[in-house]
Each structure stands twice: as structure tokens, then as C-alpha cells.
């Protein structure tokens, strides 16, 4: 059994427009995936594909307009979506932790970083001040912050972008979580700093046998830091499998298009016909959501696409793939 098992997750945004009419954006339309212990799963997709929303739905941090309308998310066997807010609150920041994109705004500007590390420990278990502080300093050292004793007394605004991201990693790991969710953890950082942060993150994840979910739009990060990946389009996972398999033999036409759009592939094969308008979540096409943009679309694509196992562990949601492979 995997540590996190998400089944058929549906999340909708329900809002009112200027004319006071109710509008429903079907942002997640049946997301299913699993993350095992010690496994790093990358979730890729473009703006509006529902990557972050998947994570936020799972840990119950949705904006007011968004509602999970169906699905389950089992963490160590318990359904997170059925939990009381109080129970979920105890898990969040303790068993399940989150690293977000903007390190600067994620730290409390009015508290020294050491105190923030102490506070998050005391929020979840009974530790003495001294012990919490020792843990905090130790954690800062672990994430590669030089002179941690001194740095624990620093204010968030005194940190550079890379240092702030290290502190966030420290906060995410100080309680010894089992599942780590990193939402665009290095977007906005410089390339040379990104390398430091990702290397550090992966070292820690592997040393502690954590399960990790990395949400990113950067195929480079997935290619080099994840075991398995899930490709999202318009609120569905259209393909998932081992990273090496998907990069080498992408099955779903959207995955193919994504990989063909990387500069390296363009340099090697020329420009492929890709792109198109982002999906309109208020009026998704019936059947396969990608069919309007798909170069391989056929008549059958107006009906719900089947989930096809392409090879061991690699599955795609597509009629065309189904015809080529035989449904299992």
C-alpha cells in the first residue's frame, strides 16, 4: 500500500459572475495517483492544469470558492478528505508538510527564523523550549545554513531567496514528516541556486525515506529528481509512469507535445505542431479534454477516454493509445 493514495478526485470552483449567475469551473476531473514511501513523484502540467489544486485539495487548503465534490485521498489508510478540520490540522505541518514557491512571503516577517522553527514544533507535540531550540539549530545546519546558532536569530527579511528557501525546507522537515509536498520549490530562484536547493532537498528526502510530491512546470526538474511522474491536463492526469519511460516513450499525445516543445527536441527535430488555447474550465469538451488541440484526435475522442496500461506502471488516458495497445 502506498503512503498517499488519491482516488477520483474532483474539485470545482463555484463563483458568481457579474450578472449574478453561478459559474462552475471544473478544475479537477477525476485525479488518481499514489505516492509510496521513499518515492518522489513529479506532477507536471501547464497553467490551469490543476497541479497545485490537487495538492491543496488533498491537504484541505483550498480557497473559499473551491470545493472537493468527489473522491478520496488516503494517507496511511485514512481518508484526508473525510477528516475533521482539527484532525487534518494535526497532520498538516507534522506528518504532511508543504514547501511553497515564494519563500519570502511564506515566513512570518515579525518572528525570528529560530522562533518560527520552535513554534512549529510546539504546535504539534510537547517539547521543551530547550529541546525545540536545539532541534531548530540542528535543522538549520542540516539544510546547509552556515553558522546556524547565529542564523536562528535572523529575521526573514535578512535572508536571501536561496537562504529563505532553505529555512522553509527546515520548517517542513523539523517535525519529521512522512509526506512532503513541494509546490514549485525553486521557481524564481537563479539556476545556480536552484541546483543547490534541489540537491539538498533530494538528499534529505532520500536520507529520511520520505514520500515526496514535486509540483512543477519544469520538465528538467522532473527528469532529474523524480522517480515517477504524472502529466496533468485540464484537471486530469493524462499519463503517469516512471520518469525514464515517459521521457523515452511518451504515449499520450499531450505528453508527446510537451516533450517535443523542449528546446532540445526542437533543436534535434525542428518545430512540432503543438500549442493551442488553454482549456476553458467553464466549458470543457466532452470526452477527452485534449481533443481540440490533439493532432491525433478521432471520432471516438468525444467519448470518455479509457485508462490504458502502456507498459508496467505507465498508464495513459487516451482512445488513440488504447487502439494501439489493447485495453487491459
Amino acid at each position: 500500500m502506498s503512503l498517499l493514495e488519491v482516488e477520483n478526485l474532483h474539485t470545482h470552483f463555484i463563483t458568481r459572475d457579474l450578472g449574478n449567475r453561478i459559474r462552475v469551473a471544473t478544475a479537477l476531473n477525476g485525479v488518481s495517483f499514489a505516492v509510496g514511501e521513499g518515492e518522489v513523484v513529479g506532477i507536471v502540467g501547464e497553467t490551469g492544469a490543476g497541479k497545485s489544486l490537487t495538492a491543496m485539495s488533498v491537504i484541505g487548503l483550498l480557497p473559499p470558492a473551491a470545493k472537493v465534490v468527489a473522491g478520496t485521498a488516503r494517507f496511511a489508510g485514512d481518508d484526508l478528505l473525510a477528516m475533521s478540520p482539527a484532525t487534518l490540522n494535526r497532520l498538516r505541518g507534522d506528518q504532511i508538510t508543504l514547501i511553497v514557491q515564494s519563500p519570502k512571503t511564506s515566513l512570518d516577517p515579525l518572528k525570528r527564523i529560530g522562533d518560527q522553527l520552535v513554534r512549529i514544533q510546539k504546535a504539534h507535540r510537547a517539547v521543551s523550549d530547550d529541546e525545540a531550540r536545539r532541534n531548530a539549530v540542528e535543522m538549520l545546519a542540516t539544510v546547509g545554513i552556515p553558522d546556524p546558532e547565529q542564523r536562528a536569530r535572523a529575521w526573514p527579511h535578512e535572508l536571501s531567496g536561496g537562504m529563505a528557501q532553505r529555512v522553509l525546507i527546515a520548517m517542513a522537515l523539523v517535525n519529521g514528516p512522512r509526506l512532503l509536498i513541494a509546490d514549485e520549490p525553486t521557481t524564481g530562484l537563479d539556476v545556480t541556486v536552484q541546483a543547490q536547493i534541489l540537491d539538498l532537498l533530494m538528499e534529505l528526502v532520500q536520507a529520511r525515506r520520505l514520500a515526496a510530491m514535486i509540483i512543477t512546470h519544469d520538465l528538467g526538474i522532473v527528469a532529474h529528481y523524480c522517480h515517477r511522474m504524472a502529466v496533468m491536463f485540464a484537471g486530469r492526469i493524462v499519463e503517469q509512469g516512471k520518469v525514464a519511460d515517459i521521457f523515452k516513450r511518451p504515449a499520450h499525445p499531450y505528453t508527446k507535445a510537451l516533450i517535443a516543445s523542449t528546446p532540445k527536441q526542437i533543436a534535434a527535430r525542428g518545430y512540432a505542431k503543438v500549442g493551442g488555447l488553454p482549456p476553458n474550465l467553464y466549458a470543457l469538451p466532452s470526452g477527452c479534454h485534449y481533443r481540440d488541440r490533439c493532432p491525433e484526435a478521432e471520432a471516438a475522442c468525444t467519448t470518455e477516454p479509457p485508462l490504458v496500461t502502456v507498459r508496467d506502471g505507465q498508464r495513459a488516458l487516451c482512445h488513440v493509445v488504447a487502439r494501439g495497445t489493447r485495453v487491459q
Binding site: V191, T192, Q194, A195, D218, G220
Partner: peptide, 14 residues
């Protein structure tokens, strides 16, 4: 040299 080496090409085999 370090900039190029820090960069992550979208290809797991590289």
C-alpha cells in the same frame, strides 16, 4: 561552466 552544469536538461538520460 558552473551555470551550464547547474542547468537541468529535460532529459533523464543526460
Amino acid at each position: 561552466q558552473s551555470l551550464l552544469s547547474a542547468h537541468l536538461p529535460p532529459d533523464p538520460d543526460e
